[in-house]
Write a protein that binds this DNA or RNA. Sequence first.
DNA 1: CACGACCGTTCCGTATACGGAACGATTTCC
DNA 2: GGAAATCGTTCCGTATACGGAACGGTCGTG
Lengths: 205, 205
Amino acid sequence: MGTDGTSRIDPAIGRRLRGLREARGLSLSELARRAGVGKATVSGLEHGTRNPTLETMYAIAAALSVPMSALTLDPGAPAGAASAVRGTAVVSTLLEVFREPGATYELFRLRIVAGVEQTSPAHPPGVTEHLSVVAGTIRTGPAAAPLTAGPGEHVSWAADVPHVYAALGGEDAHAILLIRTPHDTPHDPPAGPPGRSAGEQAAQA
Amino acid sequence: MGTDGTSRIDPAIGRRLRGLREARGLSLSELARRAGVGKATVSGLEHGTRNPTLETMYAIAAALSVPMSALTLDPGAPAGAASAVRGTAVVSTLLEVFREPGATYELFRLRIVAGVEQTSPAHPPGVTEHLSVVAGTIRTGPAAAPLTAGPGEHVSWAADVPHVYAALGGEDAHAILLIRTPHDTPHDPPAGPPGRSAGEQAAQA
DNA sequence: CACGACCGTTCCGTATACGGAACGATTTCC
DNA sequence: GGAAATCGTTCCGTATACGGAACGGTCGTG
């Protein structure tokens, strides 16, 4: 990767790892033993001088009894207003994707910024969206006939028409969005520029 | 790691990666280009013949606009009947926990094993559960008055009474469960020791 | 049908992540 | 106060993940 000689990985991972280890009262040697990896590996990781293998990460995460994401801390951050300023009303984080025999499901956590209404274009026929309101009041659904839902309420609609998202009441709203794409229906190409940052992004919902 | 010569990594990662790539209509070459990694790397990854580096995983996840966890999918496995045999009908994977000013939300992915009905004890007053059916047919809600829901349907109920989960129709069912615990109402202590195994565990829902 | 563009796979040399061993520094126990 | 145990770091040879290049296959196009 870097032809620079010493490839560094995000030092935050090392700090996180050391924190988790010490929180459990484990010595570096002991953790290495439990994870079945070399002490040199753990040491190097904590210092951020190694670019670990997935296998190594699995082993260490398992030894600490945490999911890998606790170590890698993906970008899935709460992130203040940063992206709202860019004119995006809906900030989404992809939580999980799973394939069933008949369809693919994508699960998003949404934050809808107050005072802006965002319209998303139609998906291919057959795609349905299911939104569960977590906090705030959300007006969403087909642009032609949106519905209003509060905490604990749900809205579902066929996503083959343009649809809107808006937070009512002056406060940001939060929701869980499940998009079901039947197979046979090819997913539309990604809306944005290719190499944009992972984690938070404008919802292509 | 394996001194066997060829260390294999979980082939599910490869399948997941290929699924995400194809869902976006990207060719392998194009993905490699966007991620700034070699085609050989992507190819090897999809075939499960490489044990990738964190840096590589980051680059690819970013190019796909997904968090790394969408690729690594921690242990949250479909796992046949293994845990059902242990008398557990509901297998849950914690996807995310988030705190809002007024409440804490926990989001689970559930797999409900067919043919068994599981009853969960009452939560403290104020706790509500919201279940979205992903696949199959689920009978759930307060034990005294459960409801039946199919794919895309939702059920909500106050969780201060015993409640049940059951998959109808002879097939396992899948769902997303959101548990809202208002603050002031101290959450019941987590059933296990603090650092209990991440990923799959019996639902304390 | 020849040609170019692109696909996904495989081969290859190099950079580096790996575990084991050696090291000095502390701490524990007799 | 010396021996043993354990700590975290560093050195080292080996295994392997990496990107680039070469390859055959499949399209569109002239």
